[in-house]
Computed example of a mutant assay.
Amino acid sequence: MTTQRCIIVRHGQTEWSKSGQYTGLTDLPLTEFGVRQMQRTGRSIFRDNAFIDPSKVTYIFTSPRIRAKQTIDLVLESLTPEQKAHIRVVVDEDLREWEYGDYEGLLTHEIVALRKSRGLDKTVPWNIWRDGCENGETTQQIGLRLSRVIARIQNLHQKSMDAGKASDIMVFAHGHALRYFAGLWFRKLAVEQKCNADWERANPNSYKDDTVPYVQLDTYRYLNDNPFFLLDAGGIGVLSYAHHSIDEPALALAGAFVPPPEEESQHGEVGK
């Protein structure tokens, strides 16, 4: 039985990722280094080391920002037109970076100083995962939209599992958003919230692709503390499932490396 994977890719280096400035809605391109970085990554994962079989990549979900879409083009550059043809690219507004509001373009120490000048954080230090951003998004807001993306991806994975087909789904997005995404994937790291308010139940129509069913959530998850995941610009992580079960989301510690089939079975059956 084939194990489905969700392969998360942070965009390559930009001027602000290099400097450490918080980059949400600001639409920056990659640096020259970032371009070369992602070209090398694409050659490595698809051609030189063959960590990912392009024939198994069914969808790419991406943030609408230039830096994410540019990264996709560079990573796929080593594939043939025939290999690219069957991969559907879905631009999803729900995958945008955390909206930083007043903190856009600032460094962490500048944010801390700004909040102090406004009389905040008198008892505990600022924690974006708990406190969110002034005039930007709360942790509940980003948690809801990333929960919607995860529901869509896991629904597609379930359909491919039921059909006995392989499905690697790649997700191209941003540093905070992807670490948050991974935290929600594991469920136990997050708080579960019922969708009671109108804004929680609304369908934002964040993407346009008839082959991706919209999943209406009754509950969603959000973080209230740092998940302590690292993902540098250009970094790749692999999320999957234990025992071939959508109900057992897991981290693939081997990353993009795929072991030989005869070594792949220890998590394939319940009870093993």
Rank of each mutant, 00 (worst) to 15 (best):
F51C: 14
W16C: 03
W126I: 01
Y214I: 07
G164H: 07
P249C: 08
D92E: 11
G132K: 01
L114K: 15
R179S: 02
G268M: 14
F46W: 12
A254R: 14
L178Y: 07
I45Y: 07
I236C: 14
A166H: 10
E104C: 05
T31W: 08
P259T: 09
G235R: 03
D102S: 11
L30H: 10
E93H: 13
S78F: 11
R221T: 09
L95F: 09
A113E: 14
V191D: 05
A173D: 00
G235D: 10
D225V: 02
H174R: 06
S44P: 00
R88S: 14
K69Q: 15
Q266D: 13
Q158F: 02
N224V: 10
R148I: 05
S78K: 09
P29Y: 05
M38N: 12
G175D: 03
V90E: 05
P260A: 12
V212E: 05
I142N: 01
T23Q: 15
Q21F: 01
T139F: 02
G42V: 07
T23K: 04
N224A: 08
K159M: 08
L25K: 13
A182F: 06
N155A: 12
F228M: 03
H86S: 11
E97D: 06
A242I: 00
M161D: 12
I8F: 01
R67G: 02
W199A: 11
V238T: 15
I128C: 03
F181G: 01
E134K: 07
E32D: 15
D168I: 02
L120S: 01
D168Q: 10
R65L: 14
L79S: 10
G24D: 03
T108S: 03
F229W: 05
T123L: 10
L106Y: 08
G24I: 04
D48Y: 12
E32M: 10
R96G: 00
I45Q: 04
F51Y: 15
P259M: 09
H176S: 02
W199K: 13
I66K: 14
Q21I: 00
E104K: 06
H174G: 02
L251W: 10
T62V: 03
R88K: 15
T139C: 12
I111M: 06
A113P: 00
S17W: 06
Y222T: 00
W129N: 00
F181P: 02
R67I: 00
S160N: 06
A190S: 13
L114D: 09
